[in-house]
Simulated assay, not measured.
Amino acid sequence: MSVCRTVTVSITPEQDALLEALVRSGRYRSISETMRAALRLLERDEAAALADSRAHGMWHEAGRA
């Protein structure tokens, strides 16, 4: 198992309510688990955006040739 690091973040009351609702729903066991799921989605979205950017750049460079 990897070593976890504790961080502090500031969130809006609406974000807090969403996190609490997700935990209360039983979908997640804790706010930490919920935040890790959110970060996995962000990681996936960023990887897709990078791939799109690279594909666009390659297309753009190919158009110059």
Rank of each mutant, 00 (worst) to 15 (best):
A21E: 08
V7H: 08
E61T: 08
W59N: 10
A55W: 02
E43R: 13
C4P: 00
M58V: 15
R54P: 03
E43D: 13
E20L: 05
H60F: 15
D45K: 11
C4F: 08
A55M: 09
E46K: 13
L50P: 00
S32W: 04
E43W: 02
S2E: 09
A65Y: 02
E33T: 04
R36T: 06
A17I: 01
T34R: 10
T6K: 12
T12Q: 02
G63H: 03
S25E: 08
D16V: 01
S53A: 15
A38K: 06
Y28C: 07
R29G: 06
E33R: 04
A65N: 05
D45L: 03
E61C: 11
L42R: 13
S25G: 12
L18F: 08
R36L: 08
L19Y: 13
M58W: 02
T12H: 01
A51C: 07
R5G: 10
G57L: 11
R64A: 14
R40C: 04
M58C: 04
R27H: 11
A51Q: 07
D52T: 14
L39Y: 06
R54A: 14
R54S: 09
L39R: 13
S25Q: 10
A38M: 06
P13G: 07
I11K: 00
A38Q: 06
R27Y: 04
R64M: 10
L41I: 03
R29H: 00
H56C: 12
W59F: 14
A47K: 13
L22D: 05
D52R: 14
M35I: 05
L22W: 02
R29F: 00
V9M: 05
A47F: 01
R40Q: 13
M1Y: 02
S25C: 07
L50E: 06
D16P: 00
V3M: 10
D52A: 13
L18N: 05
I31P: 00
R40S: 11
E43I: 01
E61M: 13
L18P: 02
H56D: 04
S10G: 11
T34V: 05
E46I: 13
G57Q: 06
A21I: 02
Y28V: 06
S10A: 09
T6P: 08
L39P: 10
T34M: 05
D52V: 12
R24F: 03
A51N: 03
A21S: 14
E14I: 08
R29Q: 09
Y28G: 02
A38D: 04
L39I: 06
H60V: 13
S2M: 11
A65Q: 03
L19E: 00
S53G: 11
T8R: 12
C4E: 08
S10F: 00
P13K: 07
L19P: 03
R5E: 12
R24I: 00
T34D: 00
T12L: 06
T34L: 01
E14D: 15
A65L: 12
S10E: 07
D45P: 01
R29Y: 01
D45F: 01
I11Q: 02
R24M: 05
I31S: 00
L42K: 12
A37H: 15
E14R: 12
E14S: 11
T6M: 04
V3N: 13
E20R: 14
S30N: 06
D52Y: 09
T6H: 11
S53L: 15
Y28N: 02
A48P: 03
G26H: 08
R24T: 07
Y28P: 05
L41Q: 12
L39E: 12
A51M: 05
G26K: 10
A48R: 07
S30F: 05
V3S: 14
